[in-house]
Design a protein around this nucleic acid. Structure first.
Length: 1447
RNA sequence: GGGGGUAUAGCUCAGUUGGUUAGAGCGCAGCUCUGAUAAAGCUGAGGUCCCAGGUUCGAAUCCCGGUACCCCCA
């Protein structure tokens, strides 16, 4: 039997269901049930186990859960493996804070082992926490017991032998460290942890494969560095450690030089020496200067000035704008952006450059020059006498590392021979005899036609479709382009369509290469006065490679017309020039690479940052920036892009290394005395111009306050030159939602990404399996597994054994080089954490140890993740790692892909669309939302949202603490000690109001009547054919919904299903139940088949709906389901007291209605019952609803409330079938719209008038320009002329002097108002509603108002639906009204009174029986007593007091 | 600088192969229904469809140029 239900109490209900699931072990039974079913492989992107979950995590986890649940209900076997991301800096930073450590040194001093243990503990602790939160979300995974995880956490680092209970029910023993290392293995089950030995070892396997393909190399990168701590700092740490400080900044001058007759001379202008004016805040870096950067677009001045101490005047170059620029003017007034960062006391305002020169003497502006023209100028550096400046390759010597680059450049495709050959092809291509073959997908005919017709087509193709073809196919320029790209000197602009020669010219000058070839280029351009571009020429010739004679001619013609300058002679000289340039590049590359700092000094283009802003701007400095790639991040980037030598002056302790002789070696960079030293030297050499105190915000160590410097450090990279393989794999994957073009974005990233830096100088993470010769960086090996390591180990293995392959334990193992026999030591670095997450398709599915299992589960069918950022993080690492792992195992991209379909979703934002941050208290913790808004509500909100756009979740109110009722009891702070506060969410409120409450109310309606009526679902089913149409309709609509559900889930587009379900729930609540209420009220009568049909229909609908919605809202559906199947065990009502001893047998519900499972989640997902699907009926009902809506609209505009009965409604429909269908539903329409009569008419000509408009879509093609006239005149024509059109007959008329034949489809007819009838049309249905009221209708309307007020009174009195009452009423107008009645006729005539009335006792008497039936009342008493107990209400024109008493 | 995307109501966004009066949700205003539900339903106000040019009988839609914002890359 059903249990009565009242308010939904969603959150409480969710807690009850969590208990129920765990008591009945539902999840475990689901696994058993589906074991052996078809497999559906989901791969979880690991969540960082470093903090508790917020609402932003819950979106993705809801997707993961909902698609898994759907697959489970359709019988699939799943892995249900959650993942935790465990290693990396995020954890280290938090643990450092916890342990009160500030520096890497501090970590080393108190023991890396201890630190790593703490990291493991933290991860385990938060894994436990996130597990609990996920369970609360209803996220079904094979979860580890959080208590077991906490137990492990508390024993990490001790030797005690523990016994672990695994999720699959096994027990395992060992130390906490041993057990932890094996978490998530297939035998145990449970979440995978990326710190597991299997995960780390599988990454080793990957890196070994990279190594075997020659992709691992040692490069370098500039990092913020603390000398005292002896360590690098992360971006995160820097953000915390910025401080306002004052440094001595200086203006220095670099003398320009030039070659004259083989010797290098100071450059002079009119006999006066010329200098670049340069400014820096870090004088110590001047020792390591290699270049000076300008902005090519800026204007520079040449100023003649004589500074103090100079014998003669000199010319200075600097940005024109800077001469009078008031430096730090705003900061002087307003400070540096934070309240505590005000201009330092006692510090003067900065001087302008003009002032500085004036103070030292006179100056005069003598000409300007564009930055562009300065590029390539050579100068002498201020410290060119230092050894470090004269070391080839820079300092320290990087010859061995650079050899790796050099090797790459000498690959076959870049050889001189190859380049020459390619260039030759260019020549021959003009005659088109020996053109290379066209890539086969280039459709020739299409191309040729297009060439003839318009050049645009080609342009477009070039930019889109052919791009890939050009890159993929055998092609003329590929060698040139690849060579150019790989040396990083010629940007992709060289090959871009709109690139012109000057780009190449600039690139060459930027390299400091004033080569014969560059000059050739320029001469070539000048001689031809050509606007022809390299890209245009090469691409056009190369991309259209006609095979037929006809095609060749077409191309030649096109070349002749479109590119008149492109003569065979020009092509020839172009090709020769290209050949020479690249030959030159090849031969000169070495010298670029192996140049010393001193040799490299020249003016370069500063380029632009990632936002497109130039690195060099006018303003603060001089517009000429001193570049020291070994001392600055940006400097290093610029340097790398044009292969400047790198001088890295600092040792680990932050002092100058030995290459800086006795002047600097050993001095600390941040020591102010070092600056003095620099100034002294500069003065001595005549480079010094001016020094000043300069305040700025500068990075400091966030704990010790020590000033940081930028230092060049060695890092390990994977050469990603196999990107094309990854692109192929990327294209074999379905990327959803389509609108975000994920595949294109990923391919784009793969095309432009740089080599992958995989090392990190930290402690907690993957131990990079790279063993290197301490004396020769090129002598290194990569180890692929622990077994291999054990075999190769020459020392340290015994010490290591028994520990996880983490620092510090792994560091002691040493091997012997196979190449040189030297003892190799592991590099101390740990790995990039994206390796950890990217290897999981292999590590979690048994790639290494259980190939059978791996075969079954790889590739994953589905992954889903928040996409911003992941294209270059997780998605990228998955793709890259899989591609490499599968290399040599298969050639097919679809067998290499790690997953088949990816669903991305965007971010969770606050109510205003701003990101939520933990730091400012706007990030909403999971519990706060779950316990205040309800998890089902949250889930629906996530699922309904378009994954391609940000979700505006709501607002956290940090000032309003709340106590939350959680499954574990009330809390007022999180386990981390943060107070829980109020959370509001408009979308959540909307969903609860519009979806979940109506759903619940529909269910409650059914259950409560079923209880009252003792309806038994076991009754024999009323045959479908015997049920009323409306029953068949709601069941038919249900089948439609089932279809939508399957389609949506299969397409990973659950939002479509959720939207359809919302509409269905509305149909159910606001149409089916509302229209059928009366069928449920009738007295008990077992033979009332109509009533039985109603119950059975609604029962079926609700039961099916719970199953359909179960994946989306697992809690509310479970509650409803239990009651709907008549499960009387302690569920819906349980408070837990007797729940534990529930005697319900597993898998069988004891209740009504035959075979049901005892959980909706163990049910099969519904499938369409075709016999119940009647699309015709669905359409028809939709028409009725349309008509009713239209009727309501008409009543609205005529100001006739629905309770007021009207005499008649007439309708007509152009479609006869539609009209007769509506006619069949006349009673419904009459009832809904409260009209006495519903009449179908052929037309409404007598009641309405029509207006006619042309159907432009059909007439446009027929009449073209005449349309303007038709459009204007047709509506003005006599309706009678056009009347036949409404009966489907054509009409011929004369418009604009032409005869026009109009078919019915050519004209759009709409309905307009006539008197006494309100009329309108919608969807081809015309309706007219009689607005004339008779006194009888008015009286009936008042009677219905009366009933309405009695019902309100019943409700206010809290009566049950079966309670009987007596009614009393009083109306003060009674006497007057009697008088009125007598004169009714005349009053009506004189006032036009027609739609209002006064309520008289006689009216009540007239409707007495109706009123009593409707309100279950035994009597209606009119009283004349004045002291009424209630406020009167208005009925008609009367004030009436109505009150009730129990019968 | 290069590539991609977006621009439509106060807000968030739809808008089919070009077609008539450009829609939805929220918000606002008004009204209505209710014997399960003050749940909801209906109506209304509110738009130079970013700007300019072109193609076309006809452009929010296609093309070209510009502006603004976002993303990716260097």
């Amino acid at each position: 039997m059903f249990q009565k239900v009242d308010e939904a109490r969603f959150v409480e209900g969710e807690h009850e269901m969590l208990r129920l699931w765990s008591e009945r072990d539902v999840f475990r039974r689901l696994l058993d049930k589906n074991a052996g079913g078809p497999k559906w492989s989901f791969l979880d992107g690991p969540i960082t186990a470093n903090n508790p979950m917020g609402v932003h995590h819950a979106w993705g986890r809801t997707y993961k859960d909902v698609y898994q649940r759907y697959r489970a209900m359709t019988g699939h076997e799943l892995r249900y493996q959650n993942g935790f991301d465990c290693q990396g800096l995020w954890v280290e930073v938090e643990v450092e804070k916890e342990m009160g450590l500030g520096t890497k040194t501090a970590i080393v001093e108190q023991g890396i082992d201890k630190f790593v243990h703490e990291c493991k503990k933290r991860v385990l602790t938060f894994a436990a926490r996130q597990t609990e939160q996920s369970v609360r979300l209803g996220y079904w995974m094979e979860w580890d017991d959080p208590e077991e995880l906490r137990k492990l956490a508390s024993h990490i680092g001790d030797e005690e032998t523990l016994t672990l209970q695994t999720p699959k029910g096994e027990t395992a023993s060992g130390s906490a460290e041993e057990l932890t290392a094996r978490l998530g293995n297939p035998q145990w089950g449970g979440s995978y942890f990326t710190f597991s030995t299997e995960n780390n070892e599988t990454i080793w396997t990957f890196l070994k494969k990279c190594f075997e393909r020659g992709k691992i190399y040692l490069g370098h990168d500039v990092m913020p560095w603390g000398g005292r701590a002896g360590s690098a700092y992360s971006q995160m740490e820097i953000a915390d450690g910025r401080k306002l400080t004052t440094h001595r900044s200086c203006f220095v001058r670099f003398p320009l030089i030039e070659e004259q007759d083989g010797t290098t001379e100071t450059r002079r202008h009119g006999g006066v020496p010329e200098y670049l004016l340069v400014w820096t805040t870090t004088p110590w870096t001047l020792t390591s200067n290699v270049a000076a950067a300008v902005n090519p677009d800026l204007e520079y001045v040449r100023v003649k000035a004589q500074t103090r101490g100079d014998e003669e005047p000199a010319y200075y170059y600097f940005a024109k704008e800077n001469l009078e620029f008031k430096r730090l003017e705003r900061e002087f007034k307003e400070g540096f952006g934070r309240p505590e960062w005000q201009w330092p006391d006692g510090l003067d305002k900065l001087k302008t450059i003009s002032q500085i020169f004036k103070e030292q003497g006179k100056y005069k502006v003598d000409g300007t020059v564009k930055g562009e023209e300065m590029i390539g100028w050579r100068y002498a550096g201020p410290f060119d006498d230092l050894d470090a400046q004269n070391q080839p390759t820079g300092y320290p010597d990087r010859t061995s590392q650079l050899q790796i680059y050099a090797d790459r450049w000498s690959q076959p495709s870049f050889t001189r021979e190859q380049l020459a050959k390619d260039a030759k092809k260019l020549t021959t291509a003009v005659s088109l005899d020996d053109a290379p073959q066209v890539p086969n997908s280039l459709v020739e005919d299409k191309a040729l036609t297009a060439i003839d017709e318009q050049q645009d087509w080609i342009d477009k193709k070039l930019r889109t479709e052919w791009r890939d073809k050009l890159e993929e196919g055998p092609k003329l320029i590929s060698g040139l382009l690849e060579a150019a790209k790989s040396v990083g000197i010629l940007t992709s602009r060289l090959v871009d369509y709109d690139t012109n020669f000057s780009e190449l010219d600039r690139a060459l000058r930027n390299l400091g290469m004033e080569t014969a070839f560059a000059r050739d280029w320029r001469a070539l351009v000048a001689a031809n006065e050509s606007t022809l571009t390299v890209g245009t020429t090469l691409k056009h010739i190369y991309s259209v490679q006609p095979k037929s004679e006809e095609g060749r001619q077409a191309l030649q013609e096109w070349v002749g017309e479109a590119q008149p300058n492109l003569t065979p002679e020009l092509i020839n000289s172009l090709s020769l020039a290209i050949e020479r340039v690249f030959h030159s590049l090849e031969t000169e590359l070495g010298s670029i690479l192996f140049k010393s700092g001193a040799e490299a000094h020249h003016v370069i283009d500063g380029g632009r940052d990632f936002k497109g802003n130039p690195h060099v701007v006018a303003g603060e400095g001089t517009g000429i920036v001193h570049i020291a790639p070994g001392c600055g991040d940006v400097d290093n980037q610029i340097g790398q892009s044009i292969r400047l030598p790198v001088i890295a002056p600092l040792s680990e302790d932050g002092s100058y290394g030995p290459g800086f002789d006795d002047r600097f070696t050993g001095h600390t960079a941040v020591d102010p005395a070092t600056a003095d030293l620099v100034f002294e030297q500069l003065k001595e050499k005549g480079h010094f111009v001016y020094v000043e105190e300069y305040p700025h915000v500068y990075p400091h160590c966030w704990r010790t306050g020590e000033e940081l410097v930028f230092r060049l450090v060695d890092e390990w990279f994977i050469n990603m030159d196999w990107r094309e393989e990854i692109k192929d794999v990327t294209r074999a994957i379905e990327w959803l939602p389509e609108s975000i073009q994920g595949q294109d974005r990923e391919v784009e990233w793969l095309s432009t990404m740089r080599d992958w830096m995989i090392s990190k100088k930290r402690f907690w993470g993957l131990a990079l399996p790279i063993w290197v010769n301490p004396n020769d960086a090129s002598d290194f090996e990569v180890i692929g597994s622990l077994a291999e390591l054990k075999e190769r180990a020459v020392e340290g293995w015994d010490e290591f054994e028994g520990h996880t392959p983490h620092r510090p334990w792994i560091d002691v193992v040493k091997i012997k080089s196979e190449k040189t026999g030297a003892v190799l030591t592991r590099v101390e670095d740990v790995g990039n954490p994206w390796l950890d997450a990217g290897i999981t398709p292999f590590s979690t599915m048994g790639y290494r140890e259980q190939p059978d299992m791996w075969e079954q589960w790889y590739p994953a069918d589905f992954v889903t993740e928040c996409f911003p950022g992941q294209f270059r993080n997780w998605f990228y690492s998955l793709l890259a790692l899989s591609t490499m792992m599968r290399h040599g195992e298969t050639d097919k991209p679809e067998e290499k892909r790690p997953f088949k379909t990816l669903l991305g979703h965007r971010l969770v934002m606050d109510e205003t669309g701003q990101p939520m941050h933990k730091s400012d208290g706007t990030a909403i913790w999971f519990e706060e939302a779950a316990e205040q808004l309800g998890v089902d509500t949250l889930r629906w909100m996530y699922l309904a949202h378009n994954p391609a756009s940000d979700l505006r979740f709501g607002t956290r109110h940090p000032d309003e603490p709340v106590t939350l009722n959680t499954p574990e009891g009330p809390i007022s702070e999180t386990k981390e000690g943060l107070p829980t506060v109020k959370v509001t969410s408009k979308p959540a409120d909307d969903i609860r109001r519009q979806v979940l409450i109506p759903l619940w109310n529909s269910y409650a309606f059914f259950v409560n009547y079923a209880v009252a009526d003792e309806f038994a679902p076991t009754l024999e089913q009323v045959p479908l054919a015997d049920r009323p149409e409306i029953d068949r309709w709601i069941l038919s609509r249900l089948q439609e919904l089932i279809g939508t559900a399957h389609e949506s889930f299969e397409a990973y587009d659950v939002a479509t299903f959720v939207a359809a379900a919302t509409t269905y729930i509305d149909d159910l609540s606001n149409w089916y139940i509302r229209r059928n209420r009366r069928r449920f009220w009738r007295s008990k009568d077992a033979s009332d088949t109509d009533k039985t049909a109603a119950y059975q229909t609604l029962h079926e609908v609700l039961l099916t709906l719970t199953k359909l919605l179960a994946p989306c809202v697992p809690f509310i559906t479970e509650r409803m389901y239990g009651n709907l199947i008549g499960d009387t065990s302690p569920r819906a009502t349980s408070r837990g007291s007797n729940a534990g001893e529930s005697s319900v047998p597993r898998g069988v519900a004891r209740g009504l209605g035959g075979e049901h499972s005892d959980s909706v989640h163990l049910c099969e997902y519904p499938s369409i019952d075709e016999s119940k699907l009647d699309l015709e009926l669905n359409r028809k009902t939709a028409d009725v609803q349309t008509l009713v809506r239209l009727g309501h609209r008409l009543r609205e505009s005529a100001e006739l409330r629905v309770r007021q009965p009207l005499a008649e409604l007439q309708f007509a429909a152009s479609d006869a079938a539609q009209a007769s269908a509506l006619e069949q539903s006349a009673d419904i329409i009459a009832d809904e719209l409260n009209v006495k009569m519903v009449t179908r008419s052929e037309n409404l000509d007598d009641l309405v008038s029509y207006s006619f408009k042309p159907n432009l879509k059909t007439l446009g093609p027929k009449y073209g320009k005449l349309l303007g006239v038709i459009r204007k005149e047709l509506p003005e024509m006599d309706g009678a002329l056009l009347a036949p059109l409404r009966n489907g007959k054509p009409v011929t008329i004369t418009l604009g002097g032409e005869e026009v034949t109009l078919e019915p489809d050519d004209v759009l007819v709409s309905t307009e108002q006539a008197s006494d009838w309100a009329s309108g049309d919608d969807g081809g249905i015309q309706v007219a509603l009689s607005t004339t009221l008779t006194p009888a209708l008015i009286r009936e309307g008042m009677a219905r108002d009366f009933v309405r007020h009695v019902q309100q009174a019943r409700k206010d009195a809290g009566l049950v639906i079966t309670d009987r009452i007596r009614i009393f009423y009083f109306t003060s107008d009674a006497d007057v009204q009697i008088a009125i009645t007598e004169h009714e006729e005349s009053i009506q005539a004189s006032t036009g009174w027609k739609d209002k009335g006064v309520l008289r006792p006689t009216d009540i008497d007239e409707w007495s029986e109706y009123i009593r039936t409707e309100t279950l009342s035994d009597s209606i008493t009119h009283t004349t007593a004045k002291d009424v107990p209630v406020e009167p209400v208005t009925i008609g024109e009367s004030q009436v007091a109505i009150w009730i008493k129990p019968a």
